[in-house]
Structure formats: C-alpha cells, structure tokens
Design a protein around this nucleic acid. Structure first.
Lengths: 252, 252
DNA sequence: TTTGACCTTGACGTTACGTCAAGTTCTACG
DNA sequence: CGTAGAACTTGACGTAACGTCAAGGTCAAA
C-alpha cells in the first residue's frame, strides 16, 4: 500500500500540514519520497502515525512522543509524568477559579479593585487571603449546640429532609431539565431554605452574605466527590451547582 | 514620584522586559520618556500596572485587560466570561486525566497500545475507530463517564468506602480522642488516600497542592451542614477538620 | 492543451514575554 | 578628565504545534 499525503491524512483523521510538520521535525518521515518531491506513506508509517495521534490526544508533547516511539522512554512512565503535570494544572485552575469568583463577588459588592488610595506597598496576595479567611472562621460558632438541641427526633427529621432533597436533585438532574428552569429553581429554593434554618452558617447570619455562601456551596459540591456521591455522580453535582448559581443570581 | 523602569518593576514585582513589552503593545505607556530615551513612570502608571498584574494573575489575556482598563469592557463581565473558560478548561483536564489513567492501567495490565502485529491485513479505518472507542476521548468524555465507568459494583464499593470512613470518623470523634492523636491521624491518612484515588480532584496531585486542598476540605466539612450530617453532627465535622489539618501540616 | 486538483517549499502569526546582542548613557571613582 | 561598570535603549530570535496564505511545480482527465 502506498498513500499520498492527503490520503493518509484522511485515513488517520488529521491534515497534510500536520504530516509535513512531523516530517520537518523528524517525528514521522514518509516511507518514500518520489522524484517529484511528493511524499508517500506505507502501513508502517500509518501505524506510527496512529500512535502519535493517540499519544497526542492524551496531551503528550511531540518531543516526548518522539522519545516514546524511539524506545528511549517507557510509555507508562512518560504518561505517569504527564499525569503529574495534568494534575498540577488542574490545581492551578481550581485556585484561579476560586480567585476569580471571589473577585467578581467583591466587585458586585461594590468594592473596586485596587482603589487608588491603597496602592503603595499594597500586596494583592494579602487581599486574597483576607477573603479566603472569611469562609472558614465565621462559618461555625454555635452549630454544635443547635445540633444537640434538636434532639434525637429532630436530628432524624433533619436528615430525612436532607435525603429527600438529595433524591429530588438526582431525579431532576437525570430527567434532563435545565438547572435554570422551574424545577431546578424550585429545588434551589428548597435547598437554600433548608440551609437557612441552621444557625452558625453564613447563610443564616442576618445581613450575612447569603448569596456568596450559596454560590460557594455549589462550587464545593462539584469540587468534592463526597457530594458527587450524594447527588448521583459528577453530573448531579454540576446540576446542583448551576441551579444554585442561577437561583442566587436571580433571587439573592 | 518618578521611577526608572527597574525601580517600578521591583515595586510591582515584575521585570523591566515586561514593562517594555507592555509599552510596545500599548498596554502601559511610561508617564514620561526622557530625551535620552529612558522610560519614567509615576504613581498613576504604578496603579495601572498593579491592576494589570492583578487581572493577569486571574488569567485574563493582555488584550482583554486592555479593554477593561480602557473602560470598553465591564470588569465583572470580563471575569465572568473568563470564568466560563476556566471551567471548560478544568473539565477538559479532568477528562484527559481520566483518559491517561485508563491508558496507564491498560498498559500495566499488559496491553500494548496499537501493537504492530494486530494491524496487518484488515481495514485501517475500522481499526482506527476501534482504537478510538477504546482509548479515545469519547470513551471518557466527562467526569460523569468516570462515575458510570465504575459500574454498579464499583459505585457501590465506592459508597461503601465512604460510609465506612464516615462511621469510623464518628466513632473516633465520640470516643473523645484527640484529632492529632494516632487514631485521628490514621483516619486522616485513610481519608486522603481515599480522595487521592479520584480523578478530577486537586487532591489527586502528588506533591503539588494536596496540602492546601486537604486543609480546604476540612474547612468545608465544618462550613457545610450537609457534611455535618455525615459525620455525626457539627462536632464530628470539627474533629475531621482538625485531624485533616494536623495531618496535612505534618505529612503533606 | 487547458483546467483543476494536488503537491512542493517558504514564511508569517499565534502568547507573553525570556534571553542574548550590540550600542548608548549615566554615575562614581581615582 | 578619563574610565569602568551599571543601567538603559532598540532589535531579533525562540517558545508549541501547527493554520493559513503565497507562489509555483506536477499530474490526470477532457
């Protein structure tokens, strides 16, 4: 078999430009170059190309792919190293998302970024930390007393409500409706009302930042797999997050 | 005040090269250029630079930053759009991580990717589709797929591990031992190991930001009553938080 | 022989600068 | 006053992996 550059590109699902590039950098040379300069490829080249594209889809860089294919590097080892990098990137993104959300909240709260008066000697990283500390510290003051005060029956009932909510969330997520639609919003309302009954949470604080708290909760549901389990898997958690965010934006 | 390019670079925590670049693209011009061509900056320029660097830290591109600073774009809106993109990226990374993990598992199970022998003789296009089915992005297109990919048994086992952990946490919290003691620390270790097996969570990053993530998780357990229920009430959540913090401080 | 499809080799653009390179200017010191 | 060294300047290349023209050669069918 002997394919032209376009033929093999179509076979492998890529472009001829990519193949020329791989030739340029020595990653994949044509099996034969005709007198007129045309590139031709055979089955061996196709197999190699398939492996290249597979590894590339996994996010490996072309030099790394080259090493693997030349046998200089162990495939599993290369992928493992790549995995570390992917995870680091994910962590970085998660932190950026948190920062951006907090910044947007601050902006919506009327604060301006970097007011001109505070410029000299002002350190942004401290600003970030300040915002971050607001979560954990205030969150919990008298919750334990409230919980004990519920009594055995009260605790059971509260748990039952939580479970009912969870079931309804799962049903809604699986039914394919939109988080922003009436079903999702009704659930979000129930969810917030349920939360608001608890002293010690920011949601219950009079004048507290309910909106920010609710939105933050949604992010938590997605970030932590423990929630995903309760909401029927990652998709369920995303549904809850989106519904809560829509509700917070509209009603809070 | 009138700073040289190096002085203002140090003040803002960047480099003179960056400042020249911002000048080149018109993002930040010096307040004054002396007869000898030297750039000089005043307070207004410093404030603008601070805002540029802040927005840049949030991941905005320089053109977008320019629009925000010129008033052509709303700050919150720009950040909101950026947030969407960050979330997409996170999803993409999560899927890649899942794919790479699956691939490594397959490799360790003795399967070779695209073994050369299996190719000769039959239709390559069919072969390619098969490969894509097995390893391609479609196979694990979302975090949801990961969940479903566990299978019924896998999901049950997963839940069982979560519940067992919860029971042991409750028992430990009620027994009155210290979160920093051996029982608490052993549980924290189990907890982290359990989390580390989950693709898509920052906790899965080895050596990266595991520590910050684990500590953050602990705060979440306390902040959200939904967790409190699973851990036997607010006191249980506090116990988990303290144990995780101690563990993170010591071991991570 | 013409036409149109396919092929070739450059070369620039993409992001946000880092990193030389070569030349000019300022400051301090003997 | 001469000079060394620090600071400044303007280019210009490199980065990852090609996409996208541009200009021109080749081939098969009509």
């Amino acid at each position: 078999m002997d394919w032209s550059i376009q033929e093999i590109a179509k076979l492998a699902g890529t472009t001829s430009r990519t193949l020329r590039h791989y030739d340029d950098i020595g990653l994949l040379e044509p099996s034969r170059v005709a007198g007129n300069g045309y590139r031709h490829y055979d089955e061996r080249a196709l197999v190699r190309l398939q492996r290249i594209l597979l590894l590339r889809e996994l996010g490996l860089g072309l030099p790394a792919i080259g090493e693997v294919l030349e046998g200089d590097a162990d495939e599993a080892h290369a992928l493992g190293a790549h995995l570390d990098w992917l995870r680091q990137e994910q962590g970085r993104l998660a932190r950026q998302i948190a920062s951006v959300e907090k910044t947007i909240e601050a902006l919506e709260g009327g604060e301006r970024l970097m007011a001109d008066e505070m410029f000299d000697g002002f350190d942004h990283t401290r600003y970030k930390e300040e915002v971050e500390e607001r979560w954990g510290k205030e969150a919990y003051a008298s919750g334990d007393r409230w919980w004990r005060g519920l009594g055995e029956a009260g605790r059971r009932e509260w748990k039952a409500r939580a479970e009912a909510l969870g079931r309804d969330w799962i049903a809604a997520a699986e039914s394919g409706v939109q988080p922003g639609g009436p079903e999702g919003q009704a659930l979000a309302k129930r969810h917030v009302e349920w939360l608001t009954g608890i002293p010690g949470t920011p949601a219950a604080a009079p004048g507290g930042d309910v909106k920010a708290y609710v939105i933050g909760l949604g992010e938590m549901y997605v970030a932590d797999p423990r929630f995903g389990v309760n909401y029927g898997g990652p998709h369920g958690a995303e549904f809850v997050r989106d519904a809560l965010r829509a509700y917070a934006d509209r009603e809070l």
